[in-house]
Design a protein around this nucleic acid. Structure first.
Lengths: 311, 311
DNA sequence: TTAATAGTGTCTTTAAGACAATATGTT
DNA sequence: AACATATTGTCTTAAAGACACTATTAA
């Protein structure tokens, strides 16, 4: 920004200005770090594929990175990675710093998707959370094995919505829904977190007013069940609307089937490959390589098309 | 949220927790309040229509509400309405309170669109702005005539984009553009604010990184030229993508031409009425009334269709 | 040969854009 | 009648969805 030219009068005023006049919150940046990883199958051989279906390609599922809190509040609960903002940092810079500290990832795309500032969301006091989401290639990053103070794990994410009540009159309406968020740790079989979030959608003066409440935190810290739900829904809507974020989940070169599987994992529905290929044709470039030895017709390898990503 | 069950150990810990351990910012909510109002034409009769075109319908243009600051910093500069958040308030509640205090509007839709938290954006110190935008029916609200300490005015908004530089290589690219934001006060002929914002769009690792800088504030306080630009672009993209926000600019009943003019004012381009009518057909219901005495074929009056607004 | 995935062609449906044509008031 | 806006119909184009079909490898 251009240098702000202050008058002498203003300079004097500013010197006597006491910023402590107003109450101030702490600010944090929290992150929903998503990836896609192979779905662990129970009946699998040492090669990582089940004996009956040795020719089948591995399934991939959406994952989110959670950290077990080593200290109060919510000690031993699972939470999104994140941390407090510091003087001189923008909320985005805080998020980048935390992401690097916790995953080593440097050049990810961070999407700000919501602000959580409701009173009482943190027992320590007035703390505002700026929430970001990001997609990273899970194969590049291996989570810490964990210690007493620190444990990071990938959890599979499944969300279900169930409408539980509907009142609709002429000028007023209300729809209550229950979201079940199921998070399952991949490396620890017995670790499953199930949270429930109640959504109340009111229709007032031709506007929707949505309020959410964590009914059952399921072992998640703070309001993070709510944040995770918002992140998940926001991610889906971004991908549905055509944002090319999915490519962040892919390595440099990939097959179109792998890319399609990534889309399907995030969107939660299967796509017809003919239509999918038409849709993403502009975003990719063919390479000369192919993948062989997979038990079926070899696939061409593709890479991102820079021209399409930047215009 | 469900009551958080604290252990005795945690309760003891919390009592000794000092929230002042971390630096904290002040937080503000700023609002871009948009409306559409008649374009003042210089050659007009007392009836408000120009003599040559007495049969023509009035033009409408996009407006934004600005407030002249009565105190430091940026005294006498124009700024978005807004104010500091208080303990116990969410950022959204702060925005609603400020909107009501400054316009009397109660049931508007507030869209959060960005967070401004760059270091140095406010000479008073670390202040984070949570920015909202809203559309209101300008005919319902008359701005204060003003005093020394207080003056609120509607400004027309015109934005122009000009690309000034482009470097594109294989893996790296940069596009620099200059946005000119022209704000013209309707009631005070000689009051025109012209701000310039430089946008630098970098292409790194298949991601766009956009940074903006206010090159010329044009009499606007803080980084509000940047906030206004973001609000304007965000509003357009929301309307382009089909959000029915425009209806907030309309009275209870309206003609389809009026509605179309509102769309055109926000989108900055003219629409073909046949296509427009088809597109918004589901959102409106015909009433029995018509508008007569306008110098041409009378138009049917429509109202919002609640079923379409809430599902 | 067969299982499994890779890849192409085309028909249908839907939405958007362009534009011509008709309708109905006031002046 | 002329003007200005209101309203409808239809042709074209582009994108999305459905589905049938062909291709190629390893086992």
């Amino acid at each position: 920004m251009e240098a702000y030219q202050m008058s002498e009068e203003e300079r004097v005023w500013l010197e006597s200005y006491d910023i402590n006049r107003y109450d101030r919150p702490s600010v944090a940046s929290d992150m929903a770090v998503f990836s896609i990883l192979e779905t662990k199958s129970r009946s699998c051989s040492k090669a990582g594929r089940s004996r009956e279906n040795y020719r089948k390609d591995p399934e991939k599922g959406l994952r989110i990175l959670l950290i077990r809190r080593g200290s109060f509040p919510y000690r031993d609960c699972w939470a999104l990675p994140g941390g407090f903002g510091r003087v001189g940092e923008s909320t985005q810079e805080t998020a980048f710093r935390e992401l690097y500290e916790e995953t080593g990832v440097r050049d990810a795309y961070l999407e700000p998707f919501a602000i959580f500032s409701e009173a009482g969301r943190d027992p320590r006091g007035w703390i505002i959370s700026h929430a970001f989401l990001t997609l990273i290639d899970g194969e590049k990053y291996r989570v810490h094995e964990g210690s007493d103070a620190w444990e990071a794990r990938w959890f599979s994410v499944h969300v279900e919505k169930k409408e539980t009540g509907r009142t609709v009159e002429a000028q007023y309406g209300e729809i209550v829904s229950l979201y079940t968020v199921r998070l399952q740790c991949m490396e620890r079989d017995n670790l499953e977190l199930t949270a429930t979030v109640k959504e109340r959608k009111q229709f007032i003066a031709y506007h929707e007013k949505v309020t959410c409440e964590v009914v059952e935190s399921g072992g998640l810290a703070f309001d993070h069940a709510h944040i995770i739900l918002c992140a998940f829904l926001h991610l889906r809507s971004l991908v549905e609307s055509g944002k090319p974020m999915i490519f962040d989940l892919m390595p440099e070169v990939f097959t179109l089937s792998e890319l399609q599987k990534a889309y399907e994992a995030v969107l939660g529905r299967s796509l017809l490959s003919a239509n999918f290929r038409r849709k993403i044709a502009d975003w990719v470039m063919e390479t000369e390589s192919i993948v062989e030895g997979a038990g079926h017709r070899p696939a061409k390898l593709f890479r991102r098309n820079p021209d399409r990503f930047f215009r």
